[in-house]
């Protein structure tokens, strides 16, 4: 077993949840998302984010719009759809359940 790999797998599992959570606080453009996730040490390499975003967008959880930026080309702003919001609520519940379960297991000893 590889410790780094195990950690990466765990992060990967909740990345989807994290993206939706960030967006639930307000719209964000890609670089915002990246910076926030990086700060939180959720992602090591940026590249993994893009397939995830595209998949969520195609699933109808997200939508995006183009917005002019003060410098450089227009930016892609992501926003949560209604479907995305209810999906996030479900995930929130799921997360809480998971944390409870894990804690219960950890506290058994």
């Amino acid at each position: 077993m590889d410790l780094d790999n195990s950690k990466a797998q765990m992060r990967k599992g909740v990345l989807e949840f994290c993206i939706l959570s960030i967006l639930s606080k307000g719209d964000a453009y890609t670089t915002d998302l990246i910076n926030k996730l990086k700060e939180a040490k959720m992602i090591v390499v940026e590249g993994t984010l893009y397939p995830m975003l595209t998949r969520q967008k195609n699933a109808g959880l997200l939508s995006y719009r183009w917005e002019e930026s003060p410098q450089g080309p227009p930016r892609k702003y992501y926003t949560l759809t209604d479907k995305g919001r209810s999906y996030l609520t479900e995930l929130d519940l799921g997360w809480n359940e998971l944390v409870d379960t894990v804690n219960t297991i950890r506290n058994l000893q």
Partner: peptide
């Protein structure tokens, strides 16, 4: 920063 293609593709899962 972006990661190598294998990492990115793995993240995708598809």
């Amino acid at each position: 920063i972006l990661g190598n293609p294998d990492q990115i593709a793995e993240g995708d899962g598809v």
